[in-house]
Write a protein that binds this DNA or RNA. Structure first.
Lengths: 334, 334
DNA sequence: GCGATCTCTGAGAGCGTTCCCAGACTTGTG
DNA sequence: CACAAGTCTGGGAACGCTCTCAGAGATCGC
């Protein structure tokens, strides 16, 4: 069943059917109705491949998640939330969402190759880009449309991105800890090759310096965005007796909580704790954190990408979304 | 850049280039190498739309998740795990994965319409199908390829599915509770229009009857696969003083834990607790539960779907995967 | 009242592949 | 050595759309 068949049944030409389907002007109301009726009767849907072939547009947005299994699910609802946001925006404009998920232990090279080989998508949303990321490098070099959902490596300004002001947010978090009287404030970072982690560390250091506090290397642990890393990191910090911890992400903070509980320390009396992201779990754990709606980042990124694809906006675009400090019991008690 | 261009540069015909790309026989080694080299130089990738148009195969698998936001992320890692499994299988055979995510509060009708309208995918994986599901009904009627990742409504045998033996697993769980001496075993179900929930309830009842225990309607609460439902359900059950609860899913069990903690009751001394699914959180919460690798269900479903698409298997196929009781502290103490 | 403009419709070309067929050349067989 | 079978290559048609163009008819302005 194709346009020609519908045309015949409706007694018009293929061109007219195409016009009706694409909702173009210059079709008389009578003809439009007749065609619509035949389409409904035959339950006809135009072949997207044929359409794509000529328009050079598939209406598909790809989202690449280069992280392995244990990061994608588990406690970490970051990616699901991001995806939900992307899906929302994409649905609204009747695009489709293609998901590229890395295998456990898959090399970035291999992942990049896989994503690039299939040319289904009109554009890509990239997450967790690291320094020297092959996918990032390739896309940049070959001038394909894409949007990064964090600050790109080296603040590369030639690419479009949607991010939050991590530096300012981290400053806000640490200022809060200082305001409640903490002085030995420790930091556990996410993967330090991801810009989010770098910027949050930067903000932490800024805030300390601004208050004339020392930046003690013993109080900084380089970790990963993972609960286990928080747990291990905290164990490492304990001998140095911090009175507060600023975790690079909520999942890290959860691990910190595990370690503190195990050590018999009270939050916030002995150690105050601040996370980052305000994931679903943060509220449940009564965690003070930085809120920045991951979902909204996803939907803004998708909207931006579609605008770039459709030529409504010029490349590149930079969007920095606001953050908010959410104060809960992990810093102010009950 | 298309086949013709590559052909010209390599001094051969379009057909030959096509043969090389599709790895067909009857191409001399010399020519094959030359063509491959030109392809590499030009960084050429064949246009998937053109290919799809003629082969009538896109190499795209769709996965439909009709649940709203709060179920997709949050504590519930069910869908991310399922997706990871699907992605794994799909990657292996160089298919792509299209994700259909319902909007918050989106009607099933509307969701079905959206999924069906875009004809990108060669086949679909359906989750959380309910009785009278419009998407399910449509696909069945129009003979589209799809696989359900649970038992279909009414045990509809004309469709392909991958599921676990929920009934047997539930029996196993309840038998365990009986074996440790519990007699007032309560049940909180998931949405009762989802077959998983129905079957787990059925197994619960079977086990009680098999041991001559009464099925007390006061001990059965009809809920949803959600932590809040577990919390509310347990509060409802408390006056009836159960000595054990069999939750329809791990997320429900977490809510039950919340309510028990709040009521000052001990697990498992006062109330023993069994979940279902063995999600990531189950181990952390030391929850006795039924393990059945959601991820594996996902990858089996995807593999099955691809086999159906490629005509390697006849439609319909029914796969029932084994389950395992994982005993943790929520039933046997420490 | 008549050219200009707007509305409506259809035909043809083209998008970039795969598939089928024909033909040339090579190898095998009796 | 003739003929069959196998190997390799190229050209044309087809997949189902959109887009451009041309032309017919209706409407408008002066």
């Amino acid at each position: 069943m194709n346009l020609e068949d519908i045309a015949e049944k409706a007694g018009v030409s293929r061109s007219t059917v195409s016009r009706v389907i694409n909702n173009e002007r210059y079709v008389s109301e009578k003809v439009r109705q007749r065609v619509l009726q035949v389409i409904a009767e035959e339950n006809f849907r135009p072949n997207p491949a044929a359409r794509t072939l000529v328009t050079r547009r598939s209406g598909i947005i790809g989202t690449a998640i280069p992280q392995t299994t244990n990061v994608f699910f588990g406690d970490n609802s970051y990616y699901p939330m991001l995806l939900q946001g992307v899906a929302e925006a994409v649905n609204q404009r009747d695009y489709a969402l293609l998901l590229y998920l890395a295998e456990e232990q898959e090399e970035r090279e291999n992942f990049a190759e896989r994503v690039v080989r299939q040319r289904h998508a009109d554009g890509l949303i990239l997450s967790s880009v690291i320094e020297g990321d092959p996918l990032f490098t390739y896309l940049l070099k070959h001038d394909r449309r894409f949007v990064i959902v964090e600050t790109p490596p080296h603040h590369e300004e030639r690419v479009s991105y949607v991010t939050v002001d991590n530096v300012a947010a981290a400053e806000m978090a640490v200022n809060h800890l200082i305001a409640i009287g903490r002085r030995r404030i420790a930091k556990i970072t996410g993967q330090i090759n991801i810009m989010d982690a770098v910027e949050r560390l930067e903000g932490y250091q800024n805030a300390l310096r601004a208050h004339g506090l020392p930046v003690d290397p013993n109080l900084i642990v380089y970790g990963r965005f993972h609960r286990d890393a928080g747990y291990e990191g905290m164990k490492q910090l304990l001998p140095h007796q911090p009175d507060a911890v600023f975790a690079g992400g909520d999942t890290i903070a959860l691990g910190v909580l595990d370690a503190l509980t195990e050590a018999g320390l009270c939050v916030p009396e002995d150690v105050a704790l601040v996370g980052f992201d305000d994931l679903d779990v943060a509220e449940r754990a009564q965690l003070t954190t930085i809120n920045h709606s991951v979902q909204y980042v996803g939907s803004r990124a998708a909207t931006l990408l579609m605008d770039l694809i459709e030529g409504r906006l010029e490349h590149p675009q930079h969007i920095v979304l606001p953050t908010r400090l959410v104060i809960r019991r992990s810093t102010v008690g009950s």
